[in-house]
Amino acid sequence: MTSPTHQLAPALDIDASLTEIERGLDLLLNITPVNATEAWADFERSDFGTAPTLRLRPLEFEPDKARRDLYNLEIENVTDPALHTLFRAKRDEIARQITVLEDRDTSRFVYGSLQLYGGIAQPLASAAEKLLETIPAQAPSTRSVTAGAFAEAAQAEFDRYRAVYPDFPAPIEVRDDISELMVSFGRLLIPEAAAIRADRVEPLLHHEVGTHVVTYQNGARQPLTLLTIGLPGYDETQEGLAVLAEYLTGGLDPRRLRVLAARVVAIGQMLDGAGFLEIFESLRAEHRIPTRTAWSIAVRVVVGGGSVKDAIYLRGITRILEALAEGSSLDALFVGKLAVDQIPLIQDLLDRKVLNAPWVRPRWLDVPGAQERLDRLRAGASVTDLYEGDVSV
């Protein structure tokens, strides 16, 4: 009898090609400033009066060739209806990524960003404003750890996974050309100049390793390699899941919630025409966001010409909360990187044995108290319900 995977061999060739093309784009790194540390020093010297000049790395791919490779794929020959729809949507998303990278540092960039990540709907804007009003401003945290100390903590977290899943890789890189912690193609990238709040270390490990790395590794064990780089629109669900991981482990503190809300507010201001300095000052004066945090939020919003990506954290956790209240199981979301809306499709592929059950179970589901918190969310909760009271300074 022919295996389900063998029957889909032509489709899997296209899946592999789409994955290879997107890997070549490296969207995440290519919209990350390479000079954030120097830019902050200059900004501080200017007494916060001169907007920073953010430099992006040169593109290492040829956009026209990437487009040609993309549209040479004969997706019309894929007979499985679910995969045909999926591949067409993914091709469209990759084409938009190519355009947005070409449009960096132009007035067109923001429109490409909106096409990839969506705008700020009124309910999301209102939720963000409410969080900032409800949660008292917090004093900046004084205790922080260095990149080296965080890398050691990350290694220990990888070791916990490796104790259960011996083949679980542990790719950690400390780099001087990034300013934010990130996972890129399964690698945990730590900025060399990082000063990470000590009380954020564990939640960040559950966010970055327990969600982004775990779903990458689960995707890597699927015949469908797109599950490593993400099905169309996966980012929002991935970040929502990662924020859920922080909450279930007791790490979604008031400071973090205020940052997620402030990102949405800052994007709204950028879309209304505000520049870096106006956004930065508004975050500090109106919303009492600490200076260095306000800088980081504003940089992430204006980079490239205006990025709306950071709205996906608050929108993502909102969508996850809705799914939980509707009785959805999270299990399918661990198969790889996908969106909530694709759960029925993935479940169908699991039922047909095209996909395998997830290899790794995130540790954050099993920390003490996590299941009780998850049960409370299933009973119905909004993002403002995630605020559980003040934090000690």
Results as ranks from 00 to 15, higher is better:
residue 163 A to P: 03
residue 90 K to T: 07
residue 123 P to I: 04
residue 22 E to K: 03
residue 14 I to S: 09
residue 368 P to Y: 08
residue 362 P to L: 06
residue 110 V to W: 07
residue 130 K to I: 13
residue 305 G to T: 03
residue 357 A to L: 12
residue 191 P to K: 07
residue 139 A to P: 05
residue 353 K to W: 05
residue 177 D to L: 08
residue 269 Q to S: 04
residue 348 D to S: 15
residue 132 L to Q: 02
residue 190 I to P: 01
residue 178 I to K: 05
residue 5 T to E: 12
residue 148 G to M: 14
residue 117 Y to D: 09
residue 82 A to N: 10
residue 369 G to E: 10
residue 358 P to G: 09
residue 198 A to V: 08
residue 290 P to G: 03
residue 128 A to Y: 02
residue 294 A to C: 06
residue 161 Y to Q: 03
residue 344 P to Y: 05
residue 379 A to G: 13
residue 334 F to Q: 02
residue 233 G to F: 07
residue 359 W to R: 11
residue 130 K to W: 11
residue 352 R to E: 06
residue 20 E to R: 15
residue 154 A to L: 05
residue 116 L to Q: 09
residue 323 A to G: 13
residue 345 L to A: 12
residue 157 E to C: 10
residue 360 V to H: 04
residue 17 S to V: 13
residue 32 T to A: 07
residue 103 D to R: 14
residue 315 R to H: 07
residue 255 R to K: 13
residue 182 M to G: 09
residue 40 W to T: 11
residue 63 P to F: 13
residue 168 F to D: 02
residue 320 I to D: 07
residue 110 V to C: 07
residue 115 Q to A: 15
residue 129 E to V: 09
residue 274 A to Y: 02
residue 282 S to K: 06
residue 25 L to M: 09
residue 373 R to D: 07
residue 152 E to D: 14
residue 328 S to Y: 12
residue 121 A to C: 10
residue 280 F to S: 08
residue 285 A to W: 10
residue 74 E to Q: 14
residue 105 D to E: 15
residue 93 E to K: 11
residue 365 L to K: 04
residue 146 T to W: 00
residue 260 L to I: 08
residue 205 L to Q: 00
residue 86 L to M: 10
residue 286 E to F: 03
residue 135 I to W: 06
residue 23 R to Y: 10
residue 201 V to Y: 00
residue 365 L to G: 05
residue 197 R to W: 09
residue 38 E to T: 13
residue 119 G to Q: 09
residue 239 E to R: 04
residue 94 I to T: 01
residue 388 E to K: 10
residue 150 F to N: 01
residue 125 A to M: 14
residue 345 L to F: 04
residue 84 H to M: 05
residue 248 L to E: 04
residue 310 D to P: 02
residue 171 P to E: 15
residue 30 N to I: 10
residue 289 I to C: 01
residue 232 P to N: 09
residue 68 R to F: 15
residue 299 V to D: 12
residue 61 F to G: 05
residue 124 L to I: 06
residue 254 P to L: 04
residue 112 G to F: 04
residue 99 T to A: 15
residue 135 I to M: 04
residue 197 R to V: 11
residue 47 D to A: 14
residue 380 G to S: 07
residue 159 D to L: 10
residue 343 I to Y: 06
residue 94 I to E: 05
residue 2 T to N: 12
residue 249 T to H: 01
residue 124 L to V: 00
residue 256 R to W: 10
residue 132 L to K: 09
residue 87 F to R: 06
residue 318 T to L: 11
residue 238 Q to W: 00
residue 228 T to A: 11
residue 372 E to Y: 06
residue 31 I to H: 12
residue 64 D to G: 11
residue 68 R to S: 14
residue 279 I to R: 03
residue 272 D to G: 06
residue 115 Q to T: 12
residue 177 D to Q: 10
residue 57 R to E: 05
residue 114 L to P: 01
residue 225 T to S: 14
residue 226 L to G: 08
residue 49 G to K: 13
residue 28 L to D: 07
residue 227 L to E: 09
residue 329 S to F: 01
residue 18 L to T: 02
residue 196 I to Q: 01
residue 51 A to V: 00
residue 207 H to A: 02
residue 73 L to Y: 08
residue 333 L to Q: 03
residue 302 V to C: 08
residue 356 N to G: 12
residue 109 F to I: 08
residue 375 D to F: 05
